[in-house]
Design a protein around this nucleic acid. Structure first.
Lengths: 160, 160
DNA sequence: GGGAATCCGAGTCATCCGGTAGGATTTAGC
DNA sequence: GCTAAATCCTACCGGATGACTCGGATTCCC
């Protein structure tokens, strides 16, 4: 598995929030119930989302959570990264500010890291998919109660 | 981390084998030494590669391993899958023969699985990167002892 | 002030990862 | 046929992480 249920649950949570129209916050228990997910576990997840400033919370009675920004402006790389942590295909793979990439194996002399080319491509494939998908898309997608009509899922990073 | 060191070590092993010209098998200890990886651990990994019929082994003295097919015909999705197991972005995500995809959450009625669109895109990004890279490429890439000239790493799934 | 909610930290149980250990089996070369 | 070099196989082990649960502290509306 590339990702754990943290990403799964967290994304669902976000979608559920995005689904709500109003300005009033939604309580976690409401979300948990409607998605049939364990409430106490969700607390940890939503905490990460809050620290990443993707959701805003109001405490006390009638409190809850809501999106910190409109769903169109939230891309899924932010969400997944908040939940799963820095997303890299491999341990030895560190991204530095400048779009470049470091590899721990490099520097044991001469030869290039044999796997770097591969992981870089994978990395780019994943981030392109995540960054190219907005929360709004997912909300709309899941909201379509009508028949699926075999969704055209490709639209990201593909020219053909 | 998307992948564990199993993929890392295993790919390195494959590259090392691809690097060898001759028809004689290479002993695991030789590979382990040259890549500075623990031999006894590599045994487990190479076993998976053998079961996947990516390498062939000859036992006894002067035995070892060699590629089962020419490096140009080995794509990295086969290698990574042999090492890490079925590669899916999420637990609930099962691919069935017909290119379609199943989701365990589907069928709890009406609504579409909110995350399906996202994971499908991720999946496609990863497999395209893996399947679009051959072992031969990695061998050549790592063999270039010359200066890196800031490798053009993008070439898969990108039109630009 | 009571209750509904967010917060926070600790603890638990299982699984997997990375690696070790020990030995059985096969084979080339003497 | 003995020995050394190699593959094979199974079991084990310590640590990390995942997927939770629990208890309680805090905040705020009514």
């Amino acid at each position: 598995m590339l990702f754990s249920t943290k990403a799964e649950y967290g994304v669902r949570l976000m979608v559920e929030l995005g689904r709500q129209p109003g300005a009033e916050p939604v309580s976690l228990s409401a979300v948990a119930e409607s998605e049939r997910l364990p409430l106490s576990y969700m607390e940890h997840l939503v905490a990460k989302l809050r620290k990443a400033e993707l959701v805003r919370s109001t405490r006390g009675a009638h409190g809850g959570y809501k999106l910190a920004r409109p769903a169109e402006e939230i891309t899924m790389d932010q969400v997944v990264e908040a939940l799963e942590g820095q997303i890299a295909p491999m341990e030895c793979f560190h991204e530095v500010p400048e779009g470049k990439v470091l590899c721990s194996h490099e520097g044991d002399g001469h030869r290039l890291c044999a796997t770097k080319l591969l992981w870089t491509r994978v990395q780019s494939g994943v981030t392109r998919a995540l960054a190219g998908t907005t929360l709004a898309e997912l909300v709309e997608f899941s909201g379509a109660d009508g028949d699926p009509e075999e969704l055209r899922v490709e639209a990201v990073g593909t020219a053909a």
